[in-house]
């Protein structure tokens, strides 16, 4: 039996049809190899032309988003964002969590966007795809710079994260919240930290996430919990307790999504199940499929089971 790669979610790389083409284009860009504290992840500086994305899916509850990073070191094995990595020339598997693109000009692009007289204020959410407080943010501070831009323009924003690093920016968040310009959503998947380490290995511990909810609420910042994703057969029995503890910590509302295994995520997640909990593999996959009309993945808009309150 294959052994579990500790500290990583995906246990393999899925094929990337665009790799040859796109990596050739990326080669001239500066690449930083971290010295060990982030264990062999590679950070690639990129300069996109735009940073605010219009979110067309009605499933995710946001109209616009910003992702200062492409790829995510958190390595959540179920992450739907994995499927975007092949468009950058990397695999949705291990490379999604170890080859991270850093969009260094993101704050300038946001400043430019908010200066456009045609822009109508609509909340722009940080982390629609990849986590804006993933580990490299502690060094690069791109998310902090973006919050400063929102602050300067008095523009509403939201944050979704699985990382306690959001506490670092409490000064800006508290100021934004005084004018009702920000809310923070902490995503909590399970109460079992052993499971968390395997499922979403480089996220903050569960204890730290609840502590983050409490800290932000105490500072007067509106906080919510996102119980996401619910994976039937793995964490569905924990919904009540996660909501209860979150409410105690100060969460004002809650939401959830049921996992979908679209594209390469199906291969990555099935492989992970085979290694981490082989005895439950088929049962879990069957339960996921039963929530999506018999298929583990379902990319139709409006059919994902999602609820927010």
């Amino acid at each position: 039996m294959d052994t579990h790669i500790r500290g990583r979610g995906a246990q393999l790389n899925t094929p990337d049809p665009y790799a040859q083409l796109i990596r050739t284009q990326l080669r001239p860009l500066k690449e930083d190899v971290d010295d060990g504290s982030l264990r062999n992840s590679q950070f690639i500086t990129v300069y996109p032309k735009t940073i605010v994305n219009e979110v067309k899916s009605p499933d995710v509850g946001m109209d616009f988003s910003i992702n200062p990073y492409q790829g995510c070191e958190h390595g959540c094995v179920y992450c739907y964002a994995r499927n975007t990595h092949p468009y950058w020339g990397y695999s949705a598997g291990l490379e999604f969590e170890s080859k991270i693109m850093v969009k260094l000009n993101a704050p300038d692009l946001l400043h430019h966007h908010l200066s456009n007289p045609k822009w109508k204020a609509t909340p722009i959410v940080l982390s629609g795809n990849t986590d804006c407080y993933q580990p490299i943010e502690a060094k690069v501070k791109l998310t902090r710079s973006l919050l400063k831009v929102f602050h300067d323009f008095r523009h509403p924003t939201g944050i979704i994260t699985k990382n306690a690093l959001v506490q670092r920016d409490v000064d800006i968040l508290a100021d934004l919240s005084r004018d009702n310009l920000v809310k923070v959503i902490i995503s909590i998947t399970t109460l079992d930290d052993d499971l968390r380490q395997k499922l979403e290995p480089r996220t903050s511990t569960i204890k730290r996430r609840f502590q983050t909810l409490a800290f932000l609420a105490k500072e007067g910042i509106p906080v919510s919990v996102m119980v996401a994703p619910i994976i039937p057969g793995i964490n569905d029995h924990e919904v009540m307790e996660i909501v209860r503890i979150s409410a105690l910590m100060g969460a004002q509302s809650a939401g959830y999504t049921v996992v979908r295994l679209n594209g390469d995520v199906e291969t990555i997640f099935s492989d992970w199940l085979s290694i981490v909990m082989p005895e439950r593999r088929d049962k879990v996959l069957n339960k996921i499929a039963s929530c999506h009309g018999g298929k583990t993945g379902d990319s139709r808009f409006g059919t994902r089971d999602a609820r927010r309150r």
Binding site: L114, K120, A121, T122, P123, F153, R154, H155, P156, T157, G158, D179, N180, L181, V182, K183, P222, S224, Q252, S253, R309
Partner: peptide, 9 residues
């Protein structure tokens, strides 16, 4: 739930 302010901008 919280509704964010869009007027200030």
């Amino acid at each position: 739930p919280v509704h964010l302010n869009t007027d200030l901008y």
